[in-house]
Amino acid sequence: MQATLALDLAPIARADRWRPAELAFWLIPVAAYFIFPENLVLLTQIAITALFCLSLDLILGYAGIVSLGHAAFFGLGAYAAGLLAAHGYGDPLIGLAVAAVVTAVLGYVTSFLVLRGADLTRLMVTLGVSMMLYEIANKLTDITGGVDGLQGMEVLPVLGQFEFDLYGKTAYWYAVAVLFVLFWVARKLVHSPFGLSLKGIRLNVGRMPALGAPVNGRLSTVYTIGAAYAGIAGALLAQTTQFVALDVLAFNRSAELLLILVLGGSGSLYGALLGTIVFMSAHHLLSDLNPQYWQFWLGALLVVIVLFARDGVMGGLRGVQRRLDAAFGRTK
């Protein structure tokens, strides 16, 4: 009896270990700093969007909660950090912490609304919540500046040491460092029993209660965490640009984020990062060439991905790896 119950947990434990390819991946931001010193602003944007995409990946890719209004948390985080800095509390790390707490509270509260319905209702409720926030920010011009954006932020040096400079060097390292730390946490999270139970819920929601997993509790927790991540990403954007525009809450941002995630491949943390890198670079290059058609190609890309390449960049990479493995006679 004992022998049959002894499960082989080694593969699960092994998945938690860092692989060489991952270490190599994290050299990219370092290399990018030296290769493209002129484009630090863009690179910072990529790091921030990657973090935002990571947050959606946690709730959609791992837990399977569809959202059309994830920008609500991004925007709330941005306004939280922005308002703090505009009223004299300019320490960036405190700003991040406050943004995380505020968005986590909103995430926790709205998670109960979101979990009530099935897919379509979830789409509508998330969309509704984000549109409500948009309208609030739009109308409270005294506090948020409305369509003119929130101005007058004064962000203090990071850790009291590194002042935000004109070239965006500090901003870049700050964003990359936050991204890396939160990525590390997310990686721990998805390989933990908690993360595995999320996968289980996504794959078979009917069976998980039988295993003793509290489905709604788990989903509500991950929704809260995802919200906090998005809030931190928003706060980073506010601090590094020293400005909050109303479009942090816009529907386009939520839709674009979904696109980035499926482009990279949802349900994989590196998919979120790669998708962001590919998308933002393409956006940068293509809109230099021809800004008005960018949106057309964006739409076309989305249609093609959904029809033909549902696993995104990560799916493609996995295919390449399988072929390499086959070619060199390795077995997994």
Binding site: L258, Q295, G299, A300
Partner: peptide
């Protein structure tokens, strides 16, 4: 998938 696909169509129609 349906949402993503139709958002793609929307973007194309706007352009």
């Amino acid at each position: 998938d349906q949402v993503l696909f139709s958002i793609g169509l929307v973007f194309m129609s706007i352009a």
